[in-house]
Each structure stands twice: as C-alpha cells, then as structure tokens.
C-alpha cells in the first residue's frame, strides 16, 4: 500500500518532484565531493598534502660536517655513531657508508680483526667496500655523497645515495 501512495506522489506534480530530485542529487553531490576531498587530504600521498606526511621534520640535518680529512687515519674505518655512518679512508680516498643494515635496518658494526662489517641482528656481513657477502642482506650498504666544504672539512649528505665505487680523493 505504501508503495502505491509513493507512486501516486511521484506522478502528480512533476515540478515539485523534479525540484526535489535536483536537491537530492545536489545534496548527494556536495556530500560525496566533500567526503572525497577530505578523504584524499587525510589519507592521500605527500604531493597533495596528505595529513600523515609532516612537512617539517624535527630530525638531524641530512647534510653535516664530519671534520678535516686529516682527522681520519689512512686505512681505517671510523664509526660516527650519532650520525649513523662510517668514514672509510684508504690512502687519500674517502667514503661515507651507512651503518644501517640493508636487511631490516639494524646497525652494523666494523669488526677490525676480520676486516668486515657485521650485523648483530641476523648475521649479514659486508666487505670493507660495503658489498654484502653473507647473511640475508639483499644489497650493499648505502654510500653517501662526500664533498669538501670551503673550510676544508668533509661534508656528508645522507640524502644523496651514490654508487658504491664512488670515492672522494682529497
């Protein structure tokens, strides 16, 4: 019975029905578009300003000075714990190698006796040039860009990952 009444309403007074239809559609359109925009802003990627991607980070700068070349003894690996990098000096060439294991992100350490980097978590091993040779690590350790600043100090940029044969000769 209720259906009959509804049908009658729909047939009589086309003007009001279409006006009502218009507002129904317009209402839904506004609701859906607003919902979509907010959903995108909330869960969307960084390039559209997604809520979960902070624009300002309170993290250490990715570019930093590590000191004069003479501070590093030739043929040694220096661990800069706070910066999470190794400075590897061979003669006059310098490399900045990440301490972050390429398996699951633990911190590898330099084992002087064996001349290799070892990861304490799952046993990944890397040669002095950062190339993985044992354990679950899938790729070599990251090598970061090293340059010399105007004051003669070495500057590492951890945002720039360079090929593993790159070295800075001073």
């Amino acid at each position: 019975m209720a259906n009959n009444v509804k049908e009658k309403e729909a047939y009589s007074g086309n003007l009001y029905t279409s006006k009502r239809d218009f507002f129904t559609l317009a209402g839904w359109a506004v609701f859906l578009v607003t919902g979509l925009v907010y959903t995108l802003k909330l869960f969307g990627p960084k390039n559209i300003g997604g809520f979960f991607f902070p624009k300002v980070l309170f993290e250490p700068s990715p570019v930093f000075s590590v000191g004069l070349p003479a501070d590093f003894v030739p043929g040694t690996v220096t661990t800069l714990k706070a910066r999470k990098i190794f400075i590897v000096r061979e003669g006059n060439s310098f490399k900045a190698i990440s301490v972050i294991c390429q398996h699951l992100g633990c911190a590898v350490h330099w084992t002087k006796e064996k001349n290799i980097f070892e990861c304490p978590c799952h046993g990944s091993k890397y040669y002095k040039n950062g190339v993985n040779f044992a354990g679950p690590a899938p790729r070599p350790l990251y090598h970061f860009d090293v340059s010399v600043a105007d004051d003669g100090k070495l500057v590492v940029n951890t945002e720039k990952i360079v090929p593993i044969n790159t070295e800075l000769v001073v």
């Binding site: 990627p45 960084k46 390039n47 997604g50 979960f52 991607f53 902070p54 980070l57 309170f58 993290e59």
Partner: peptide, 17 residues
C-alpha cells in the same frame, strides 16, 4: 620522505612522532 614508512613513522626515522 614520502613513502608509506614515512607516513607510519611521521618522519624518516623512529623518533617522537
């Protein structure tokens, strides 16, 4: 600095966020 890990951690490393 724009992947899913970044969105989960609120940064590039595990920190206050």
């Amino acid at each position: 600095n724009n992947d899913i890990r970044f969105a989960l951690l609120g940064g590039t490393q595990i920190d206050a966020p």
